[in-house]
Design a protein around this nucleic acid. Structure first.
Lengths: 217, 217
DNA sequence: ATACTAATGCGACGTAGGTCGCGTTAGTTG
DNA sequence: CAACTAACGCGACCTACGTCGCATTAGTAT
């Protein structure tokens, strides 16, 4: 599967990529965004089970062979779509109060995957990513990026003295959001707002009890 | 997909099923266990990506058409394998001390998915279940069963007065194990023993802080 | 502007996944 | 023990996914 290498090197309209031997001029980039857009649309409308390369190609006006060459198949497309999503930054709460910030963070995740107007595409995308090894790898990178971004909440809180300096920022963020993803994508249990609040509160409690210290407990 | 109905009604060597119009006598049951066994074997050896109905059939000595009739495809087989696993009971720690019990519970999950001699089949099975809607439904039922079984730890603890009676048993069990599954199957982050201890400790802490009360907080 | 070459378009092809109708086997019923 | 029928075996068949070689287009370089 040299499609993987291709996928990594084919970054979005990245200016410095122009220096390499590759040719990320107008067309390749256009084809990429078109295909990713079409993939998300098809995924949202039909779901992963009914997702077909032909349908995506037809919608994007791109030939099938091109897709198999660049992405290797549907899974590569989903991984790429997720990689693009990971690049897009993301509103991190900053109210001056950690407890509130973490609560808002959990609430944001909750809303994203619950609000009927918002949930469809993110739910379909992450659900789809869980269905292939390629997608799973992309998902891992996606969450690493998100966790690191959100960790700033904790870093700021430590500077303000609201949390002990020993706490592992990523671990706190992870603990505050993990229960939501767990319900959504593993057990399939219903997700409600109290659950989001519980997750955030429990994470803060554990952090203050030194359970999330960076050094070994 | 009437294959679904079939799957539900085709319970394991269930004596009461003999009363219905169906015929769960010797053969059907044999075919089922043979196919499930073969599915797990193939899954463990080759992984979901390389899993093929033909290979499983050849190994089990069952014809392809039979599989598509009864299970509808590979996903149905995986769902069925998971349903069988959910039926098998499971050692619930009972030391007389809740903290220890919950710690052992988390540790048991950790070991199951980490020990090189144990992890392969469970990891492959749950990973595979995440890859289809049919499997996801079976996985949901699987976790519901497991959570309810493990909730006994909490119920006993409440009787002993080690935890407030208001705590939601399932929520505590879920909180103690969710972080492990989250790392394993969603973010793909490495899982170590301290993580298991953290999850258990954090869950207990939250429960004692009345964060997991059955009534709305 | 002209030559160069990645990248895509194109359509035919091979093959694996899945289906269908019918004959056969093996529990079940009386 | 004999008739009955649900479930399975069998093999041909069909669809659709994925591949391949070559022609064409569109960035790139001089």
């Amino acid at each position: 599967m040299q499609a993987l290498k291709r996928l990594e090197s084919t970054l979005p309209n990245d200016p410095k990529a122009a220096k390499t031997g590759t040719r990320p001029g107008g067309r390749s980039a256009r084809v990429r965004t078109d295909m990713v857009t079409a993939t998300l649309a098809e995924l949202t409308e039909k779901g992963y089970d009914q997702l077909t390369v032909d349908a995506i190609c037809h919608r994007a006006g791109v030939h099938k062979a091109t897709v198999y060459r660049r992405w290797g198949g549907v899974d590569g497309l989903i991984a790429d779509a997720l990689a693009l999503s990971a690049d897009q930054p993301w509103p991190i709460p900053d109210t001056g109060n950690v407890d509130e910030d973490i609560q808002l963070l959990a609430l944001e995740v909750y809303t994203t995957f619950t609000d009927p107007d918002l949930r469809t595409t993110p739910t379909a995308l992450i659900g789809a990513a869980l269905r292939s090894t390629l997608g799973a790898a992309a998902l891992s990178a996606f969450f690493t990026a998100r966790h690191q971004q959100a960790a700033e909440i904790v870093t700021r809180a430590v500077k303000r003295g609201q949390l002990p300096a020993s706490v592992d920022p990523v671990e706190l963020v992870r603990a505050a959001t993990a229960p939501l993803y767990h319900r959504l994508f593993i057990t399939g249990e219903p997700l409600d707002e109290p659950a989001a609040h519980r997750a955030a509160a429990a994470a803060l409690l554990a952090a203050r009890a030194s359970l999330f210290d960076a050094a070994a407990p």
